[in-house]
Deep mutational scan, measured.
Amino acid sequence: DKPVLAIQVLGTVKWFNVRNGYGFINRNDTKEDVFVHQTAIKRNNPRKFLRSVGDGETVEFDVVEGEKGAEATNVTGPGGVPVKGSRYAPNR
């Protein structure tokens, strides 16, 4: 398990590439950019086929120490709701 650095952090999605399945979230508290992989998205938009977060979307997440620095995990919308997802992700 990766060491946990912070829990229930709010941030804004800087960018997310649906095809490659990753992007970055900017933390509201430290203004640090945190890597996010599609496997870290815990509550996906049920209408979306692929797990994703949308550019500019506000999300809540935990921060863990990854191999290359801070990574987001347990990604949801604020308060644990499903994320909205990327407009580029296909609908079901």
Score class of each variant (00 low, 15 high):
Gly85Arg: 00
Ser86Gly: 04
Gly66Leu: 00
Ala70Ile: 13
Glu65Tyr: 13
Glu57Ile: 01
Asn45Phe: 01
Asn44His: 09
Thr76Trp: 00
Lys84Asp: 06
Arg87Asp: 14
Thr58Asn: 06
Asn44Tyr: 10
Glu65Phe: 13
Asp62Pro: 00
Thr12Pro: 05
Gly23Ala: 10
Val63Glu: 03
Phe61Asn: 01
Val83Arg: 01
Lys68Ser: 08
Tyr88Ile: 05
Glu71Gln: 14
Arg92Lys: 13
Ser86Thr: 05
Thr76Pro: 00
Lys84Ala: 09
Leu50Phe: 11
Gly69Met: 01
Arg87Pro: 14
Gly80Ala: 05
Glu71Lys: 11
Pro46Lys: 09
Phe35Leu: 07
Asn28Asp: 12
Pro46His: 07
Asn45Trp: 03
Ala89Phe: 05
Asn20Ser: 14
Glu71Thr: 09
Pro90Trp: 11
Lys68Cys: 08
Val64Ser: 05
Lys84Ile: 13
Ile41Val: 15
Gly79Trp: 06
Thr58Lys: 10
Asn28Lys: 01
Val75Ile: 07
Gly66Met: 00
Lys68Tyr: 09
Leu50Gln: 09
Phe24Val: 00
Thr76Lys: 05
Glu67Gly: 11
Val63Ala: 00
Ala70Asn: 13
Tyr88Phe: 15
Lys84Glu: 10
Asn20Lys: 14
Thr73Ala: 15
Lys48Gln: 09
Gly79Phe: 08
Asn45Val: 01
Arg51Ser: 11
Pro90Asn: 10
Asp55Gly: 14
Gly56Ala: 05
Gly69Gln: 02
Arg87Glu: 12
Asp62Phe: 00
Val63His: 02
Lys48Val: 04
Asn45Pro: 03
Asp62His: 01
Phe61Arg: 03
Phe16Tyr: 15
Arg51Asn: 11
Gly66Gln: 04
Val59Lys: 01
Glu60Asn: 05
Gly85Asn: 02
Gly80Asp: 07
Pro78Lys: 07
Phe49Asp: 11
Asn91Asp: 14
Ser52Val: 03
Thr30Asn: 10
Arg87Ile: 14
Ala70Ser: 13
Pro78Val: 11
Phe49Glu: 12
Gly21Arg: 06
Ser86Gln: 07
Asn17Lys: 06
Asn26Ser: 11
Val81Asn: 12
Leu50Ser: 09
Val53Asn: 01
Arg92Tyr: 10
Asn44Arg: 08
Asn91Thr: 13
Glu60His: 05
Gly85Ala: 03
Glu57His: 03
Gly85Met: 01
Arg47Cys: 12
Pro82Leu: 03
Ser86Phe: 05
Gly54Asp: 13
Pro78Trp: 04
Asn45Leu: 02
Thr76Gln: 08
Thr73Asp: 11
Pro46Leu: 08
Arg51Met: 07
Tyr88Gln: 07
Pro46Val: 07
Val53His: 04
Val4Gly: 04
Asn74Ala: 07
Gly80Ile: 01
Asn26Ile: 15
Pro78Ser: 02
Pro82His: 12
Glu57Cys: 00
Glu57Ser: 01
Phe61Pro: 01
Ala70Pro: 15
Tyr88Val: 07
Gly54Ala: 15
Gly85His: 02
Val63Gln: 03
Ala72Glu: 00
Gly77Cys: 05
Tyr88Thr: 06
Gly56Tyr: 04
